[in-house]
Computed example of a mutant assay.
Amino acid sequence: MTTRRTLARLGATAAGTSVLALGLVAPASAHVTVTPSDTAAGAYTVLTFSVGHGCEGSPTTSIAIQIPEGINAATPTRNDYYDVEKTVEKLDPPVTDAHGNELTERVSTVTYTARTPLPDGYRDTFDVQVQLPEDAEGADLAFPTIQTCEKGETPWTEIPAEGQSEDDLESPAPAFVVTAAGADAHGGGDEAADETAEETSAETSSDTEASGEPAAEASGDDSGNGLAIAGLVAGVAGILVGGFALLRGRSTTA
């Protein structure tokens, strides 16, 4: 009995220590994060930014997301609880996009301002669509974000130096690694499917002409009709011969 009580007390102590440890690390790990729908270079992707807490207990009033250079357009999704605004900056010199259009300005920041402050202990998400740079394969793409609260603010803007990881930083910027371009990044998959369908159709047509199956079917029908006619003619001839033989026999008997 004593042993059981001792183990129970040790278990309760260990559990309490674990809960305390989790409580200590939870705020540190609850950064502003970004989750892309696609990470391939050149792909159009929807970036979901997640905010999990306020500024040391103070409700969140705005989230300002900085768009890195190399991304010229950003399309934010509307949120019922926030007003959204895009800040535009001039491009000097202008750049040419993937469609050959000359761009003289780009979206540099997307800001969500709360109509009703987001209480600490509640989370929210913000979606922004962008096209990832075509030459960014392998790059760690960061989106420095400023979280402003009723009291104070938290700049999620730290970028790891060489040899560092996000875990080494107190307020890391939301970021992810850009992967290799996909085959269908610009609709190549649909074009490839159309080409495959055309090739399949051409091969089918070629095989039909080479095999001569339609001609064989026509030949078979003609042969069947000829045999039927020949059989009919032979039957009529037999009847005529039989009738002639019968009449001759009767004449001889008489």
Rank of each mutant, 00 (worst) to 15 (best):
I229T: 08
A41L: 07
A139E: 11
P119C: 10
Y44G: 14
P68M: 01
G100C: 06
T61V: 15
E203Y: 10
L47H: 07
F143R: 04
G152V: 09
D80F: 08
A180N: 02
T96Y: 13
Q129Y: 13
T111Y: 14
D194T: 02
D135I: 12
A234S: 11
D168T: 01
A181Q: 11
F244D: 04
T96V: 15
R4T: 15
G23T: 14
R106E: 11
A43Q: 03
T96M: 09
L91C: 06
L132W: 06
E150R: 00
G100M: 08
E203I: 12
A245K: 05
T60Q: 01
P144I: 08
A40C: 09
P155N: 03
G249V: 07
T111C: 09
P133F: 08
Y112C: 07
G224P: 00
H99Y: 15
F49P: 07
T2F: 14
K151E: 15
P27D: 07
L10D: 13
Q164R: 03
Y112F: 13
T157C: 01
I63Y: 03
L141H: 01
L240D: 08
Q164Y: 14
S29Y: 15
T113A: 06
S206L: 14
A185P: 05
D124S: 10
S50H: 10
G235F: 12
S165V: 11
E170T: 05
S171G: 00
V130T: 07
V46R: 07
T104P: 10
Q164M: 07
S205P: 09
V130N: 03
A192H: 02
D207M: 00
T75Q: 02
L118C: 13
T17R: 00
E89A: 05
A185M: 11
I239T: 11
F244P: 01
D124M: 03
T60I: 11
E198I: 13
P68K: 00
T75H: 03
A210H: 06
W156C: 02
V233D: 00
S211F: 08
T113D: 03
G11L: 06
S37W: 10
R106K: 06
L7C: 11
